[in-house]
């Protein structure tokens, strides 16, 4: 079967909206409802965070949602359980995002097989480095039709970007600035230079810009330089509100896609 991420980027070349949320937050059993609401509101791709106790690449908002999710009882096992019928509900591309240690404890092979079984299309594991991926993970990922999504940053050299582009499938995750998630939120000159540098490289994979995208303005700006953008902390923050879930999701997504 064709990977849903590839299909998406073949069909849609601009203003692709990807949204991240932490599984198990605000409530343990919200996972499927959040996915359904995001789909209803026209989101193109969903990243489901697997919470970890020590998320070093994340800022305060996702640190907090991860902590609460763990306190609520979230685990990879639980998450797979919640997702077991998700493909009867939606065909949207789904990516799991999380740190390497819980995946190692689950067992890499078992984890990847389970991903295929429930219908996951890709993985983002920030602390899985390129070299370890190539040696120890690539073949199990590929055997299970899972795309490993790599990050690039303003500090990534051109050479390394080409290497990453070479082994990437699906898309490349362009980290907007040198930052943990949730920081900074305007497109500075420095970021513009970086975005333009990457665009001029004519990479084979589409790019999505993430980190610091929080409203319609930052979303629009990011979309000028890539196929689309990824929103994480701002959405997680919105989920912390007291309104009904349906309302929180639709209000937030509307505020992003509506041109001001």
């Amino acid at each position: 079967m064709k990977n849903r991420i590839n299909k998406l980027f073949q069909e849609k070349k601009e203003r692709v909206l990807s949204v991240y949320f932490t599984a198990g937050y605000p409530d343990l059993e919200d996972t499927v409802s959040i996915i359904q609401e995001l789909v209803k509101n026209g989101v193109d791709l969903i990243e489901i965070g697997m919470p970890f106790s020590d998320p070093v690449a994340d800022g305060p908002v996702i640190q907090r949602s991860s902590l609460i999710a763990l306190q609520n009882g979230m685990s990879i096992r639980k998450l797979f359980d919640q997702l077991k019928d998700i493909r009867q509900v939606t065909d949207i591309p789904l990516i799991l995002m999380g740190y390497i240690n819980p995946v190692l404890q689950y067992g890499v092979e078992a984890f990847c097989e389970k991903c295929r079984e429930v219908g996951i299309d890709g993985l983002i594991i920030p602390d899985l480095p390129l070299s370890v991926y190539e040696e120890d993970f690539r073949s199990v990922f590929e055997n299970n039709n899972l795309h490993n999504i790599f990050l690039i940053t303003p500090q990534t050299s051109d050479d390394r970007m080409r290497t990453i582009d070479g082994i990437s499938e699906g898309f490349i995750y362009m980290v907007s600035s040198n930052a943990t998630t949730g920081a900074k939120s305007s497109v500075t000159d420095f970021q513009r230079d970086y975005f333009e540098r990457v665009n001029s490289m004519e990479l084979k994979n589409p790019r999505m810009i993430g980190f610091g995208i929080s409203n319609s303005e930052t979303f629009r700006n990011a979309c000028q330089y890539a196929s689309g953008a990824i929103i994480g902390s701002a959405f997680v923050k919105a989920l912390g509100g007291t309104e009904p879930l349906e309302q929180k999701v639709s209000q937030f997504i509307n505020s992003i896609v509506t041109e001001s």
């Binding site: 690449a57 920030p126 899985l128 990050l151 690039i152 500090q155 990534t156 390394r160 040198n178």
Partner: peptide, 11 residues
């Protein structure tokens, strides 16, 4: 051992 670092720390 090894270096399980996010891309942001690679350089």
């Amino acid at each position: 051992g090894g270096a399980y670092i996010p891309e942001m720390m690679v350089p």
